[in-house]
Amino acid sequence: MIGDGALSVDPIVVGVVLAMAVVTYATKTGGLWLLNRIEASERLEAALSVLPGAIVIAVLGPELAAGGPAEWGAGVLVVAVMWRTESILLALCTGVVSVVALRAVV
């Protein structure tokens, strides 16, 4: 299929892609746009202050729950390396290397 036109572009496909791009851009900018327009109360600031950690946990929870011992073990190592070294690169490399190694043994 790729041979008969890697560069071919169907106008309908372009239309769908543009529509996807527009709604995605709306989601990326919508939160900031809304917050810039409303008066931030103390309660709202309290709510916003927990958002970064809460989003991180919400992404991680189901991801780790779907994993197994290899992912959990590698996850513990990532957190341990992060606490000791505060280097995200070192933590990342530890995580990827250890998950591959652990998947090979468990």
Binding site: I57, V59, G67, G75, V79, A91, G95
Partner: peptide
């Protein structure tokens, strides 16, 4: 595992 590792490091 990259995304999970980045987010775990951030959570720490």
């Amino acid at each position: 595992f990259v995304l999970a590792a980045v987010f775990l490091a951030l959570a720490a």
